[in-house]
Design a binder for these strands. Structure first.
Lengths: 355, 355
DNA sequence: GATCCCAATGTAACTAGTTTCACAACTGAT
DNA sequence: ATCAGTTGTGAAACTAGTTACATTGGGATC
């Protein structure tokens, strides 16, 4: 068990010696076996298995200048917002022989830059970034080190880096239109912190493109189930009255739904609720959440392919906008004529069914 | 923009030449600046910034034999089961200068082995594995390549690799005891696929350690919110009658809760529901989910430290069992005397309040 | 039978760092 | 003045691969 006992792993030279060939031949067996004569190849392959030889990725990387690793900077894995996309990216990347290092940033800009530095230091060949608004320092870094990067979950064809995502503004507009068509006029727009999150800002902008006769109240909260709940609790306490909650993320909608339920406010009879994202569990809530579907996995897959192609074949990807689409389920309904402006605000502490 | 135009990144030799010193000196400035005379160091540092030099991780790795990268094999990022833990690991690892590559395996054993191979091929220094039951091929691989590995979310002090987790069996027992103490006797134990998942098996075992007078029905389903919902839908269709649902994972409990609600079965008045995990959103559901808290983040942090220490200082970590603890919230209540054996099964399609 | 070509292999020089060892220059004690 | 000890630096040999170029030997062509 002592330190000298662990005979170090075999390397190319060891294999060459064992097979009685040159290192070049071993390398050929590894990389272009076809050009090596069969019996030589067999001899080398035997030596390889006998010595338990495995080529060192570091040594390969040093020659090729290729680490075959990408990095992803994401705010968090906590809520499902990025989980599906990251998993899709990871899976697709695997098929291209790339690995993914995920760094979480808690949406703190300085931390983002810091983590980006670390990723570049370990030699990632490219980066996935959420959205396009990041510290100038981050972009400086990318430019100086000439690192390809793709902004995901966002679309802006004019941006200096390719964006592969969806039209967040439109997603919110779809949700708003839906509520509008159902006759809702006093709408609470529930969103996470605007600062450092351009997806949120775009969605708010989309929700703001309202027609007359629609009164919007913007409520900022933490981007979590708890955050959504908080908003409703506050609305209840303040006796605010809304026809509908437009939650800029399904995660928030869950919290809104739970808390409305806690106050006994019937959804969609008394208030409608709509989210944006269409997470897997969104169709399982009771009532099933109406939302705007974002093709998060498709986007992840495509972004993975695009970045892989970029570094492999030097083709800078085009910006891609995936369509998002309204999924009207059970949490949105036509505004009932009988519902007056107080029905949503004067709910007792326990369930009622007065619609 | 042509290929020859991209003057390649500066290396140690370039810096040495620019600063008029030897490569050894540059290396010293990088790694032990204290032993280099101030003016020499300044000269080198100037050259470094002027040339925009950044040491190559690959070249470092080749010398040190250290990649500073760990790998984690996890079934999925989809449901929150691993997300928090992975994030905790990643965060803690960062403080030790390690990065984490996550590989998802969809709980398919062959894929697990395959992904493990890939991780080892990129040179990870250690691995985090969920639980201890894995293909023999995986353990062969780890043994042959002498890769440290820690099994997480599981505890078995006698296992050949360190386990850092919690007592899944006890977690389930805590849940069962709680239900028992509340007078529930006909209990549905809802769980994900047993195959390839020892956490699930342990929890089932824990839930099976029942006293007389308790009738347990084990229901296997997909490990997801939808899976939990399916179970309830089936129970309703078959007119099965339960006092309580013991969900071996909060994710399942969410689905159970949603679906019971859809059928108008009052929780906890008619049936109690309890989960295991205590995800952040568990305390936000309505009613708030009773569950057994698993210290997933703490565990992740500790596992990260342990693996880092293992490869740094060659200290094989001890197995650690974190305490799990019952969190009785609102989905569990004493069985009401009036509830007869049909109350849960003959529920109409829409809400009733007959408790 | 000499020339030519080509496939198969070897030699050695790369990739970009770290590290050992040698050596010069200076300090301080004898 | 001499010797020992420290300090700072450089030359070169490592780490483990890839690859450009050279070499060898056999078969086909002239």
């Amino acid at each position: 068990m002592n330190s000298r006992r662990d005979k170090k792993r075999a390397n190319l030279r060891d294999v060459a010696r064992a097979a009685n060939v040159s290192v070049a031949t071993v390398s050929r067996v590894l990389n272009s076996p076809a050009i090596v004569q069969q019996d030589t190849r067999l001899r080398v392959e035997t030596a390889i298995t006998e010595l338990g030889f495995h080529p060192s990725a570091a040594a390969r990387a040093i020659n090729s200048g290729r680490s075959k690793i990408f990095g992803a900077l994401i705010p968090s894995l906590d809520n499902d917002t990025f989980a599906l996309t990251i998993e899709a990216i990871e899976r697709r990347l695997g098929q291209f022989g790339f690995s993914l290092v995920v760094a979480t940033t808690a949406e703190v800009p300085e931390q983002e830059v810091q983590r980006a530095k670390e990723l570049l230091d370990i030699g990632v060949e490219g980066l996935f970034l959420p959205g396009i608004s990041h510290e100038a320092a981050l972009y400086d870094l990318l430019a100086r080190r000439r690192v390809p990067a793709i902004a995901i979950s966002y679309f802006d064809p004019g941006f200096s880096y390719p964006t592969i995502g969806y039209d967040n503004r439109k997603a919110a507009r779809l949700a708003l239109d839906h509520l509008f068509e159902l006759g809702h006029q006093r709408i609470a727009v529930v969103h996470g912190p605007k600062i450092h999150n351009d997806r949120t800002r775009e969605r708010i902008a989309g929700a703001s493109e309202h027609r007359k006769d629609v009164a919007l109240t913007f409520l900022e909260t933490e981007l979590s189930v708890a955050g959504g709940a908080t908003v409703v609790a506050q609305a209840m306490a303040e006796k605010w009255s809304f026809d509908a909650y437009l939650c800029v993320s399904d995660v928030l909608a869950f919290g809104v739904l739970f808390e409305l339920q806690r106050y006994g406010v019937a959804v969609p009879d008394v208030v409608s609720v709509i989210g944006i994202h269409d997470l897997p569990s969104s169709q399982m809530t009771t009532p099933r959440l109406s939302t705007v579907h974002l093709p998060a996995e498709e986007m992840g897959q495509h972004a993975a392919e695009a970045l892989a192609q970029w570094v492999e074949d030097d083709v800078v990807p085009d910006a891609v906008c995936f369509e998002c689409k309204l999924v009207a389920r059970e949490t949105t309904a036509r505004k009932t004529a009988v519902t007056n402006s107080k029905s949503a605000s004067t709910a007792p502490k326990h369930p009622t069914k007065d619609a």
